[in-house]
Every structure is written in C-alpha cells, then in structure tokens.
C-alpha cells in the first residue's frame, strides 16, 4: 500500500429509507477509505446503495449511523469547494448555454462574472467543447452534455469529484471514448474521483481501486487495488484474469439482487 494520506474516510455508515411499501435498508455498516489522488470505483448490483453512498459524500443525504470524513472534517452538507458531483442525467439547465452551465457553480459561489467566465472558457478546450460555448443543451449530443456536466464540476476546482454513473445513458462507443477522455482529465488534474458504474470495463480501465458492493442492504464486499500502468491494455492476460475475478464477485451479488 502507498503511504499517501487518506482523503476520504467512511466509517460504519448505515442508511434506511422509509417507503410506502415498508422500510428499505439501503446501506449497512459500510466502511471505506480513499487516499488522495485515487480513482475509486464503486461497482455492484442495481439498488445496492451506491448512489446513496455518493449522495452522503456530496452532503445531499445524511446517514442514520456512522460518519464520513473528507479531509479530516465531517460532512455536514454540500460543500462544493471540496466535493463536486456529476449525476447520471447530465442535469444541465436547459435555459443556459454551455458556457453558462459550466460557470453555474462559480456563480452560486459569488465569483465575479468576468473571472468565472474566464475559468469556464479555459475549461472548454480540454472538454472538447470549443465552438459550442453559446449552444443550448438541446443542441448538444449526449456525450457533449455529459462533458458539460463534468466541466461544471471541474470549474469549482474541488479536490474530490463524485461521479454517479456519468456515462450510464450513453451508447457503448461514446462511452468508451468518454472513458479515455476522463482518464486523461483525471491524470492531468490529479483529482480524487469516486466513480459509480455498472461497467466492468470502466472499472478496470480507469480505477486505482475497485470496491464491490453487495446486494441490498449494501456493504463493501471486497476492495481491489489495481496498480497497472495507464493506459491499460485490456487484452493482457493479467487484465483478463482480473476481469474474470471481478465478474465472479459481482455475478453472485447480481444474482442475489435479482431474486
């Protein structure tokens, strides 16, 4: 294990939702730690509480028990200067242009118009959105929309980026390209990323650490550290073996979730 400091600590977190059809245990006694600069992927069957866990780190959901520390301080609410979230649906404001969407977070923080415009404009290049600054969301493709949403999170320059299945709604080819693009962005900005996905490929291609969650109530089943160099050759025997191992872990839980 490396000696880098832990940036995120999750200790014994439990969450139960009350629904009209009775209580649902979303998370049960989840503990996980993520070190600075890591790319940590949460993977597991549908409804295993991955999104709930992410919501807690983002300060949108409060745990019933346990605690979450970011940078040594407990999470009490949304703190966009430290943690920025990207949702599965891009969630772009349809009445705002690309540029205005990217600068939205800065605007809420009260950053002066000129400075936030500049920050956002500088981001468009790496986002591959130069020339689309004045377009409205309806004029953008699915992949572009998701890049705008990621740009909106990056604009805040928070240390931590939470991503809740950001590419879940995209077609496979776009998805692969977006993965390569995200890897590039991450390696350049050195953010700490928590990434929720259903895709084995994404988990193995991107992560330094993969946490497999169990079927509901969600717990951390196993956590793997991946040390291979980037960019990873997905066909190497090492990767193929890892993929098989990961799949057998997840398959079991997915089967349980389907029952």
């Amino acid at each position: 294990m490396s000696a880098r400091p832990e940036l995120i600590t999750i200790e014994g977190v439990t969450k139960r939702y009350l629904t009209s059809s009775g209580p649902v245990d979303a998370l049960h006694d989840v503990s996980l730690s993520v070190e600075e600069g890591a790319f940590c992927t949460l993977i597991g069957p549908s409804g295993c509480g991955k999104s709930t866990l992410l919501g807690m780190l983002g300060g949108l959901v409060t745990p019933d028990r346990g605690r979450l520390l970011v940078d040594g301080r407990p999470v009490t609410g949304p703190d966009p200067r430290r943690v920025a979230t990207v949702f599965q649906e891009a969630g772009l404001f349809p009445w705002r242009t690309t540029l205005q969407n990217v600068e939205f977070g800065l605007e809420l923080q009260g950053v002066p118009a000129e400075r936030r415009r500049q920050t956002a404009a500088e981001l468009l290049g790496p986002l591959g959105l130069s020339g689309f600054a004045e377009k409205y969301p309806r004029e953008l493709s699915g992949g572009m929309k998701q890049r705008v949403a990621i740009g909106r999170a990056l604009a805040l320059d928070a240390k931590i980026l939470l991503m809740d299945e950001p590419f879940g709604a995209l077609d496979e080819q776009t998805r692969l390209l977006m993965g390569e693009w995200l890897l590039d962005i991450w390696r350049r900005t050195r953010k700490t990323v928590i990434f929720v996905t259903h895709s084995l490929h994404e988990a193995l291609f991107l992560s330094t650490r993969v946490a497999v969650m169990t079927a509901r109530p969600g717990r951390i089943k196993t956590a793997l550290d991946l040390t291979m160099e980037y960019p990873r050759a997905m066909e190497s025997s090492e990767m193929v073996a890892l993929r098989a191992k990961l799949w057998s872990e997840i398959r079991e839980e997915s089967l349980r979730a389907m029952r």
Binding site: G58, G59, L60, P78, D79, P80, R81, A84, T85, F87, E89, G91, F93, F104, G105, L108, Q109, A149, R152, L156
Partner: peptide, 15 residues
C-alpha cells in the same frame, strides 16, 4: 421541476 436540476444546484451549494 426536474429533480436532477434541484440536486445539481444543491450539490453546488445553492442557497
């Protein structure tokens, strides 16, 4: 109103 938009704004620290 689209719940995602509200969640986005809240996560970005909207008052």
């Amino acid at each position: 109103v689209d719940r995602t938009l509200v969640a986005v704004a809240r996560s970005l620290g909207a008052t």
